[in-house]
Every structure is written in structure tokens, then in C-alpha cells.
């Protein structure tokens, strides 16, 4: 009896410790959200914040339209480059796992995932900015594409590996070439998982500052031409937060809120798509 009580006591103590640690782990997340929302909300509540671009300190009505459009174009171009290549690479790595080439691709993408994003920015600077002698959205999107590529490869590989082998064999047994089975049967089946990976890569690229610092540089003007220097949301936060003017600092918080909401939205969407994939794979 006595031992039983002691055991229950110890159990509830440790359970309590675990709850406490869980709460501790959640505190940073809560604080980040709380600060961004409370500090960013005043800026976001003005409609012109979304329709206007940069205005110098002292002139009211400044907005981040140039940064939102810039981020959309930068990330859009990066996606056009990274997602198709990443998907094909991921299918290759998963479907031809025993090929020696595949293990090199896998190693390369692992190294790329671990590469500091500022180094990737520097690489794009040397590759694109230096030869043409000016900063451009294209240079920025190339840096972002390099950042996205390994994420797309590895998530595609994971999604394809989730497809039961029976499906592959059934396709091959019909006398179809291996590449057609991979691309026209396995890949469509893995599509939701692949889309999840692409969305995660988009979310990641949307929030990156370092690769853009010496590629896209930033711009106070509203630009849609990617051969010019372009503004982006993370650049806005970085630049405005360093300025000594309260109104621009407030706009930095506003931009941060927009970015956090955007990335959160993409992440939730990708989780929803992934859940469909898991359900589908269970039926096959």
C-alpha cells in the first residue's frame, strides 16, 4: 500500500515536470507571436500599409506594397527554378536509390541544407551580381532557389518512398518503361506529399533575409522588373528596424506580422495537404 502511494506520487511529480517543460518550450513561440501581433497590428490596420510603398520619415502613409510584391516575385521565380528540378531530383533519388549517382545527389542536398544561407547569398553574388555589375531580383531568386532546392529534393524523396512498392511493380508488370512508371504513376500518387515539400520550401524562402542582402539588395521603389534591385519583406524588417525613426520601426513590426501570418498560413496548408497524402497511401 505504502509503495503504491509512493509510486503514484513519483508518477505525478514527473508528469508535472513534463508539463512544465512543455510549457517552457512553448513560451518562446507564444512570445514571438504576441510581440509581432501587438507591435505589428497598429501598422497593419491602415489599409494604405498594403497599397503604398516606402515614404521617408515624416511623410505619413508609408506602406510595404513594394516589399510584398517583391517577395512574391522573388519567391515565385525561385520556385519556378527550384521546384521542377527538385521534384525530378527527388524522384530520381527515391526511385533509383541504389544508383551510386543517387547517393551523391543525396549527399549534396544534405550539405546544401546545412549551408549557411548567407554563404548561398555570397555565391549568388559572385555568380550573378559581379558579372553584370548590378544587383537584381534575379540574383536574389537564384539564391533563394539554391536554398529551396535541397528541401524540395528531400521531401519529394520522402513522399515517393512512402508509395507502396506494389504500385511500382504493378506498373512495371504492364510492360511500361521505368521512367514512365516513376513520372506518370508514382509521382502523381505522391503529389500531395510533393506539394507539401514545395510549400515548405516556399515558406522557408519567403522568410530568408541573408541570401537577399547582396543579391536583390532592396529598393525603396515599387518594382516588378526582376532585372532591377527589389525589395522583400524580410529586407524591409531588417532595414527599417535599424533606422532611428519610430514610424519606420513600427512598419518593420507590421511587415514582420505580415510575414509571420503568411508563413504560418503556408505551413498550415502544407500540413493539410500532407494529411491527405497519408490517408491516400493507406488505401493503396
Amino acid at each position: 500500500m505504502n509503495r503504491n502511494v509512493r509510486r503514484q506520487f513519483a508518477s505525478s511529480i514527473w508528469l508535472g515536470v513534463m508539463y512544465l517543460l512543455t510549457v517552457l518550450a512553448l513560451i518562446p513561440l507564444g512570445l514571438v507571436l504576441w510581440f509581432t501581433v501587438s507591435k505589428g497590428l497598429p501598422s497593419v490596420l491602415h489599409p494604405e500599409f498594403f497599397t503604398n510603398s516606402f515614404r521617408p520619415f515624416g511623410i505619413p502613409g508609408g506602406g510595404i506594397a513594394h516589399a510584398i510584391v517583391g517577395t512574391a516575385i522573388l519567391v515565385g521565380l525561385a520556385s519556378l527554378m527550384a521546384i521542377p528540378i527538385g521534384i525530378l531530383g527527388g524522384v530520381y533519388v527515391a526511385e533509383y536509390a541504389v544508383d551510386p549517382w543517387a547517393s551523391w545527389v543525396r549527399l549534396a542536398s544534405d550539405v546544401l541544407v546545412g549551408t549557411p544561407s548567407i554563404a548561398i547569398g555570397l555565391f549568388a553574388y559572385a555568380l550573378v551580381v559581379v558579372p553584370v555589375h548590378h544587383f537584381s531580383g534575379i540574383a536574389g531568386s537564384i539564391a533563394l532557389a539554391i536554398l529551396m532546392l535541397p528541401i524540395v529534393i528531400r521531401t519529394t524523396e520522402g513522399a515517393v518512398a512512402l508509395i507502396p512498392n506494389g504500385l511500382r511493380e504493378s506498373g512495371l508488370a504492364l510492360g511500361l518503361p521505368r521512367w514512365r512508371v516513376s513520372l506518370q504513376l508514382i509521382l502523381p500518387t505522391a503529389a500531395p506529399g510533393v506539394i507539401t515539400g514545395a510549400l515548405l520550401a516556399v515558406a522557408r524562402a519567403s522568410g530568408e533575409t541573408a541570401p537577399l542582402l547582396f543579391t536583390s539588395l532592396g529598393n525603396t521603389l515599387f518594382k516588378v522588373d526582376p532585372t532591377q534591385a527589389m525589395q522583400a519583406l524580410p529586407l524591409t524588417i531588417y532595414q527599417y528596424a535599424l533606422l532611428p525613426y519610430k514610424s519606420l520601426q513600427d512598419q518593420a513590426w507590421g511587415a514582420a506580422l505580415v510575414l509571420v501570418v503568411m508563413v504560418l498560413g503556408i505551413n498550415l496548408l502544407s500540413r493539410w495537404v500532407l494529411r491527405r497524402q497519408i490517408r491516400l497511401a493507406g488505401q493503396l
Binding site: G166, E169, S170, L172, A173, L174, G175, L185, L284
Partner: peptide, 19 residues
């Protein structure tokens, strides 16, 4: 190989319906 597999079809333990 592809002609062979068209000529010699196979049905597996699991039906593996295509999605």
C-alpha cells in the same frame, strides 16, 4: 524487356489499385 512484360502479365497478392 518491355515486350516480354506485355506478353507475360502479372497479378500480385495485393491488388494495388492505381489512385
Amino acid at each position: 524487356l518491355l515486350e516480354l512484360r506485355q506478353k507475360v502479365g502479372m497479378v500480385f497478392q495485393r491488388p494495388s489499385p492505381f489512385p
